[in-house]
Protein backbone atom coordinates (compact mmCIF):
# COMPACT_ATOMS: atom_id res chain seq x y z
CA UNK A 1 0.00 0.00 0.00
CA UNK A 2 2.78 2.32 0.84
CA UNK A 3 4.46 1.64 -2.45
CA UNK A 4 1.22 2.28 -4.23
CA UNK A 5 0.80 5.55 -2.38
CA UNK A 6 4.24 6.72 -3.34
CA UNK A 7 3.70 5.73 -6.93
CA UNK A 8 0.33 7.43 -7.09
CA UNK A 9 1.69 10.63 -5.57
CA UNK A 10 4.56 10.73 -8.02
CA UNK A 11 2.06 10.20 -10.79
CA UNK A 12 0.03 13.14 -9.54
CA UNK A 13 3.10 15.33 -9.42
CA UNK A 14 4.01 14.33 -12.95
CA UNK A 15 0.49 15.03 -14.19
CA UNK A 16 0.57 18.46 -12.64
CA UNK A 17 3.94 19.17 -14.17
CA UNK A 18 2.73 18.16 -17.60
CA UNK A 19 -0.35 20.31 -17.16
CA UNK A 20 1.82 23.28 -16.28
CA UNK A 21 4.09 22.74 -19.25
CA UNK A 22 1.08 22.45 -21.53
CA UNK A 23 -0.34 25.67 -20.13
CA UNK A 24 2.95 27.38 -20.66
CA UNK A 25 3.18 26.18 -24.24
CA UNK A 26 -0.39 27.20 -24.85
CA UNK A 27 0.24 30.76 -23.84
CA UNK A 28 3.23 30.95 -26.08
CA UNK A 29 1.64 29.64 -29.20
CA UNK A 30 -1.26 32.02 -28.91
CA UNK A 31 -1.26 34.65 -31.59
CA UNK A 32 -1.02 38.17 -30.50
CA UNK A 33 1.32 39.88 -28.20
CA UNK A 34 0.10 39.63 -24.65
CA UNK A 35 1.55 42.96 -23.95
CA UNK A 36 -0.01 44.80 -26.82
CA UNK A 37 -2.84 46.98 -25.82
CA UNK A 38 -5.08 49.38 -27.53
CA UNK A 39 -6.82 52.49 -26.42
CA UNK A 40 -6.84 53.24 -22.77
CA UNK A 41 -4.61 50.36 -21.90
CA UNK A 42 -1.94 51.35 -24.39
CA UNK A 43 1.60 51.18 -23.16
CA UNK A 44 4.53 53.28 -24.11
CA UNK A 45 7.46 51.53 -25.75
CA UNK A 46 9.48 51.92 -22.55
CA UNK A 47 6.73 50.38 -20.47
CA UNK A 48 6.44 47.53 -22.93
CA UNK A 49 10.16 46.88 -22.77
CA UNK A 50 10.15 46.98 -19.01
CA UNK A 51 7.26 44.54 -18.79
CA UNK A 52 8.88 42.33 -21.33
CA UNK A 53 12.00 42.14 -19.26
CA UNK A 54 10.04 41.67 -16.10
CA UNK A 55 8.14 38.74 -17.49
CA UNK A 56 11.26 37.43 -19.10
CA UNK A 57 9.63 37.51 -22.51
CA UNK A 58 12.90 38.33 -24.15
CA UNK A 59 14.49 35.05 -23.16
CA UNK A 60 14.49 31.83 -25.20
CA UNK A 61 11.51 29.56 -24.74
CA UNK A 62 13.16 26.98 -22.56
CA UNK A 63 14.55 29.69 -20.34
CA UNK A 64 11.09 31.08 -19.94
CA UNK A 65 9.72 27.68 -19.07
CA UNK A 66 12.40 27.20 -16.44
CA UNK A 67 11.66 30.64 -15.04
CA UNK A 68 7.96 29.88 -15.04
CA UNK A 69 8.34 26.60 -13.22
CA UNK A 70 10.96 27.98 -10.93
CA UNK A 71 8.68 30.83 -10.01
CA UNK A 72 5.82 28.45 -9.41
CA UNK A 73 7.88 26.38 -7.07
CA UNK A 74 8.43 29.48 -5.02
CA UNK A 75 4.78 30.36 -5.19
CA UNK A 76 5.39 33.24 -7.51
CA UNK A 77 2.82 33.47 -10.21
CA UNK A 78 3.76 36.86 -11.44
CA UNK A 79 1.97 40.15 -11.07
CA UNK A 80 -1.50 40.94 -12.21
CA UNK A 81 -1.70 43.48 -14.99
CA UNK A 82 -5.10 44.69 -13.81
CA UNK A 83 -4.42 45.07 -10.13
CA UNK A 84 -0.69 45.42 -10.05
CA UNK A 85 -0.51 42.98 -7.17
CA UNK A 86 1.05 39.52 -6.96
CA UNK A 87 -1.20 36.97 -8.57
CA UNK A 88 -0.72 34.53 -5.75
CA UNK A 89 -2.01 37.10 -3.31
CA UNK A 90 -5.11 37.75 -5.38
CA UNK A 91 -5.82 34.08 -5.81
CA UNK A 92 -5.50 33.32 -2.13
CA UNK A 93 -7.74 36.25 -1.34
CA UNK A 94 -10.53 34.89 -3.50
CA UNK A 95 -10.03 31.23 -2.78
CA UNK A 96 -12.12 31.06 0.41
CA UNK A 97 -15.25 32.31 -1.32
CA UNK A 98 -14.99 29.70 -4.05
CA UNK A 99 -14.14 27.06 -1.49
CA UNK A 100 -17.25 27.95 0.46
CA UNK A 101 -19.45 27.76 -2.58
CA UNK A 102 -17.79 24.66 -4.00
CA UNK A 103 -17.67 22.94 -0.66
CA UNK A 104 -21.35 23.54 -0.05
CA UNK A 105 -22.27 22.22 -3.46
CA UNK A 106 -20.05 19.19 -3.02
CA UNK A 107 -21.65 18.45 0.31
CA UNK A 108 -25.13 18.77 -1.10
CA UNK A 109 -24.18 16.55 -3.99
CA UNK A 110 -22.77 13.94 -1.75
CA UNK A 111 -25.58 13.83 0.74
CA UNK A 112 -28.58 14.40 -1.47
CA UNK A 113 -27.20 12.92 -4.65
CA UNK A 114 -26.08 9.73 -3.00
CA UNK A 115 -29.26 9.30 -1.02
CA UNK A 116 -31.45 9.89 -4.06
CA UNK A 117 -29.29 7.65 -6.19
CA UNK A 118 -29.59 4.74 -3.79
CA UNK A 119 -33.29 5.36 -3.36
CA UNK A 120 -33.92 5.38 -7.07
CA UNK A 121 -31.86 2.24 -7.61
CA UNK A 122 -34.03 0.39 -5.13
CA UNK A 123 -37.15 1.73 -6.81
CA UNK A 124 -35.86 1.07 -10.28
CA UNK A 125 -38.40 1.44 -13.06
CA UNK A 126 -41.14 2.69 -10.80
CA UNK A 127 -43.02 5.78 -11.95
CA UNK A 128 -41.27 7.83 -9.34
CA UNK A 129 -37.93 6.60 -10.57
CA UNK A 130 -38.70 7.51 -14.15
CA UNK A 131 -39.89 10.99 -13.24
CA UNK A 132 -36.95 11.75 -11.03
CA UNK A 133 -34.58 10.49 -13.68
CA UNK A 134 -36.10 12.73 -16.30
CA UNK A 135 -36.18 15.69 -13.94
CA UNK A 136 -32.57 15.22 -13.02
CA UNK A 137 -31.61 14.90 -16.68
CA UNK A 138 -33.40 18.19 -17.27
CA UNK A 139 -31.41 19.67 -14.40
CA UNK A 140 -28.20 18.48 -15.95
CA UNK A 141 -29.24 20.01 -19.25
CA UNK A 142 -29.87 23.40 -17.69
CA UNK A 143 -27.21 26.02 -18.33
CA UNK A 144 -25.97 27.18 -14.93
CA UNK A 145 -25.75 30.80 -16.00
CA UNK A 146 -29.32 30.82 -17.24
CA UNK A 147 -30.66 29.22 -14.11
CA UNK A 148 -28.59 31.70 -12.16
CA UNK A 149 -30.03 34.76 -13.80
CA UNK A 150 -33.55 33.39 -13.61
CA UNK A 151 -33.24 32.64 -9.91
CA UNK A 152 -31.45 35.90 -9.24
CA UNK A 153 -33.99 37.79 -11.27
CA UNK A 154 -37.10 36.30 -9.71
CA UNK A 155 -36.27 35.07 -6.25
CA UNK A 156 -33.71 37.80 -5.78
CA UNK A 157 -34.98 40.89 -7.47
CA UNK A 158 -38.66 40.53 -8.11
CA UNK A 159 -39.72 38.71 -5.00
CA UNK A 160 -36.89 39.94 -2.82
CA UNK A 161 -36.64 36.71 -0.91
CA UNK A 162 -32.93 36.24 -1.04
CA UNK A 163 -30.04 38.47 -2.04
CA UNK A 164 -29.29 38.13 -5.74
CA UNK A 165 -25.68 39.19 -5.76
CA UNK A 166 -22.51 39.45 -3.80
CA UNK A 167 -21.38 37.54 -0.80
CA UNK A 168 -22.46 39.87 1.95
CA UNK A 169 -23.91 43.19 2.81
CA UNK A 170 -21.29 45.89 2.93
CA UNK A 171 -22.78 47.10 6.20
CA UNK A 172 -21.73 44.26 8.42
CA UNK A 173 -22.97 43.37 11.87
CA UNK A 174 -21.20 41.19 14.40
CA UNK A 175 -19.67 37.83 13.54
CA UNK A 176 -22.90 35.88 13.86
CA UNK A 177 -24.84 38.42 11.85
CA UNK A 178 -22.14 38.32 9.19
CA UNK A 179 -22.17 34.57 9.11
CA UNK A 180 -25.93 34.51 8.66
CA UNK A 181 -25.65 37.18 6.01
CA UNK A 182 -23.08 35.19 4.09
CA UNK A 183 -25.25 32.12 4.33
CA UNK A 184 -28.20 34.02 2.94
CA UNK A 185 -26.10 35.15 0.02
CA UNK A 186 -24.82 31.63 -0.46
CA UNK A 187 -28.22 30.07 -0.95
CA UNK A 188 -29.00 31.09 -4.51
CA UNK A 189 -25.60 30.43 -6.07
CA UNK A 190 -25.25 27.14 -4.22
CA UNK A 191 -28.75 26.13 -5.23
CA UNK A 192 -28.06 26.95 -8.86
CA UNK A 193 -24.87 24.95 -9.03
CA UNK A 194 -26.37 22.08 -7.08
CA UNK A 195 -29.42 21.70 -9.26
CA UNK A 196 -27.23 21.44 -12.29
CA UNK A 197 -24.75 19.00 -10.82
CA UNK A 198 -26.84 16.76 -8.62
CA UNK A 199 -28.32 14.98 -11.57
CA UNK A 200 -24.97 13.54 -12.52
CA UNK A 201 -24.16 12.34 -9.05
CA UNK A 202 -27.57 10.80 -8.58
CA UNK A 203 -27.50 8.91 -11.82
CA UNK A 204 -23.98 7.70 -11.31
CA UNK A 205 -24.79 6.41 -7.85
CA UNK A 206 -27.97 4.79 -9.08
CA UNK A 207 -26.12 3.01 -11.86
CA UNK A 208 -23.33 1.91 -9.55
CA UNK A 209 -25.73 0.53 -6.99
CA UNK A 210 -27.75 -1.32 -9.62
CA UNK A 211 -24.53 -2.98 -10.78
CA UNK A 212 -23.71 -4.10 -7.29
CA UNK A 213 -27.22 -5.30 -6.49
CA UNK A 214 -26.86 -7.83 -9.26
CA UNK A 215 -23.85 -9.44 -7.69
CA UNK A 216 -23.97 -12.84 -5.99
CA UNK A 217 -22.79 -11.62 -2.61
CA UNK A 218 -25.97 -9.60 -2.30
CA UNK A 219 -27.94 -12.83 -2.58
CA UNK A 220 -25.70 -14.27 0.12
CA UNK A 221 -26.47 -11.33 2.36
CA UNK A 222 -30.21 -11.82 1.90
CA UNK A 223 -29.89 -15.57 2.38
CA UNK A 224 -28.30 -14.88 5.76
CA UNK A 225 -31.53 -13.28 6.82
CA UNK A 226 -30.23 -9.75 7.07
CA UNK A 227 -32.77 -6.92 7.04
CA UNK A 228 -33.13 -5.34 3.61
CA UNK A 229 -31.88 -1.94 4.74
CA UNK A 230 -28.69 -3.58 5.90
CA UNK A 231 -28.33 -5.41 2.61
CA UNK A 232 -28.71 -2.16 0.69
CA UNK A 233 -26.65 0.21 2.80
CA UNK A 234 -24.05 -1.98 4.44
CA UNK A 235 -23.41 -4.54 1.73
CA UNK A 236 -24.40 -2.97 -1.53
CA UNK A 237 -23.72 0.72 -1.02
CA UNK A 238 -20.34 0.14 0.55
CA UNK A 239 -19.31 -1.35 -2.77
CA UNK A 240 -21.19 1.14 -4.87
CA UNK A 241 -19.37 3.95 -3.16
CA UNK A 242 -16.26 3.52 -5.24
CA UNK A 243 -17.53 4.79 -8.56
CA UNK A 244 -18.99 7.78 -6.75
CA UNK A 245 -15.63 8.53 -5.15
CA UNK A 246 -14.03 8.41 -8.55
CA UNK A 247 -16.79 10.66 -9.70
CA UNK A 248 -15.70 13.34 -7.30
CA UNK A 249 -12.33 13.25 -8.90
CA UNK A 250 -14.05 13.94 -12.19
CA UNK A 251 -16.59 16.32 -10.76
CA UNK A 252 -14.02 18.75 -9.57
CA UNK A 253 -13.24 20.21 -12.97
CA UNK A 254 -16.94 20.48 -13.70
CA UNK A 255 -17.69 22.18 -10.42
CA UNK A 256 -14.84 24.56 -11.01
CA UNK A 257 -16.11 25.44 -14.46
CA UNK A 258 -19.68 25.70 -13.28
CA UNK A 259 -18.65 28.00 -10.54
CA UNK A 260 -17.14 30.34 -13.12
CA UNK A 261 -20.57 31.07 -14.55
CA UNK A 262 -22.38 31.08 -11.27
CA UNK A 263 -19.89 33.36 -9.61
CA UNK A 264 -20.08 35.67 -12.56
CA UNK A 265 -23.87 35.83 -12.52
CA UNK A 266 -24.16 36.28 -8.77
CA UNK A 267 -21.11 38.53 -8.43
CA UNK A 268 -19.76 36.03 -5.94
CA UNK A 269 -16.21 37.21 -5.13
CA UNK A 270 -14.41 33.99 -5.86
CA UNK A 271 -11.86 32.65 -8.31
CA UNK A 272 -14.38 32.20 -11.08
CA UNK A 273 -15.40 35.82 -11.23
CA UNK A 274 -11.75 36.78 -10.88
CA UNK A 275 -10.96 34.73 -13.95
CA UNK A 276 -13.78 36.29 -15.92
CA UNK A 277 -12.49 39.71 -15.07
CA UNK A 278 -9.02 38.67 -16.13
CA UNK A 279 -10.33 37.53 -19.49
CA UNK A 280 -12.04 40.81 -20.14
CA UNK A 281 -8.93 42.76 -19.25
CA UNK A 282 -6.46 40.42 -20.89
CA UNK A 283 -4.71 39.95 -17.59
CA UNK A 284 -2.66 36.93 -18.62
CA UNK A 285 -0.64 36.46 -15.49
CA UNK A 286 -3.81 36.35 -13.48
CA UNK A 287 -5.55 34.08 -15.93
CA UNK A 288 -2.64 31.70 -16.11
CA UNK A 289 -2.31 31.81 -12.35
CA UNK A 290 -5.94 30.86 -11.99
CA UNK A 291 -5.53 28.03 -14.48
CA UNK A 292 -2.51 26.75 -12.57
CA UNK A 293 -4.39 26.84 -9.31
CA UNK A 294 -7.34 25.06 -10.80
CA UNK A 295 -5.12 22.39 -12.32
CA UNK A 296 -3.50 21.86 -8.95
CA UNK A 297 -6.89 21.55 -7.29
CA UNK A 298 -8.04 19.04 -9.88
CA UNK A 299 -4.93 16.92 -9.54
CA UNK A 300 -5.23 17.07 -5.78
CA UNK A 301 -8.89 16.13 -5.97
CA UNK A 302 -8.31 13.08 -8.15
CA UNK A 303 -5.43 12.07 -5.94
CA UNK A 304 -7.61 12.35 -2.87
CA UNK A 305 -10.41 10.33 -4.37
CA UNK A 306 -7.97 7.62 -5.46
CA UNK A 307 -6.47 7.49 -2.00
CA UNK A 308 -9.91 7.31 -0.43
CA UNK A 309 -10.75 4.48 -2.79
CA UNK A 310 -7.60 2.64 -1.81
CA UNK A 311 -8.26 3.12 1.85
CA UNK A 312 -11.80 1.86 1.56
CA UNK A 313 -11.17 -1.06 -0.75
CA UNK A 314 -9.36 -3.82 1.08
CA UNK A 315 -8.37 -5.41 -2.17
CA UNK A 316 -6.15 -2.44 -2.92
CA UNK A 317 -5.15 -1.78 0.65
CA UNK A 318 -3.76 -5.21 1.34
CA UNK A 319 -1.91 -5.83 -1.87
Amino acid sequence: MRRWLVRRTLQAALTLLIALVLLFLLIHILPGDPLAREGEHALTPEQTEALRARYGLDRPLFGQLAAFLGGLAKGDLGVSIQYGRPVTELLLERLPATALLGGTVLLLNFVLGVWLGVRQAVRKDSREDRWITTLSLAGYATPSFWLGIVLAGFVGVRWRLLPPAGMRDPLGGGTVATAVDILRHLILPALTLSIVSIAGTMRYQRAALLEVLRLPYIVTARAKGLPESMVIWRHAWRNALFPVLTLFGLWLPILVSGSVFVESVFAWPGLGSLAIGAVGNRDYPLLVGAAVLVAAVVVLGTWLSDVAYAVLDPRVRTS
Partner: peptide, 23 residues
Protein backbone atom coordinates in the same frame (compact mmCIF):
# COMPACT_ATOMS: atom_id res chain seq x y z
CA UNK B 1 -1.66 8.94 -21.78
CA UNK B 2 0.51 11.06 -19.51
CA UNK B 3 -0.10 13.97 -21.84
CA UNK B 4 -3.81 13.31 -21.78
CA UNK B 5 -3.75 13.17 -17.99
CA UNK B 6 -2.02 16.50 -17.88
CA UNK B 7 -4.42 18.04 -20.34
CA UNK B 8 -7.39 16.74 -18.40
CA UNK B 9 -6.16 18.46 -15.28
CA UNK B 10 -7.04 21.85 -16.68
CA UNK B 11 -10.80 22.19 -17.06
CA UNK B 12 -11.83 22.70 -20.63
CA UNK B 13 -13.49 25.99 -19.83
CA UNK B 14 -10.28 27.45 -18.46
CA UNK B 15 -8.33 26.42 -21.50
CA UNK B 16 -10.88 28.10 -23.68
CA UNK B 17 -11.01 31.21 -21.53
CA UNK B 18 -7.27 31.49 -21.81
CA UNK B 19 -7.23 31.13 -25.56
CA UNK B 20 -10.30 33.23 -26.22
CA UNK B 21 -9.07 36.14 -24.19
CA UNK B 22 -6.36 36.99 -26.66
CA UNK B 23 -8.06 37.96 -29.88
Amino acid sequence: MRLVDGALAVPRLFLLLLVLSVP
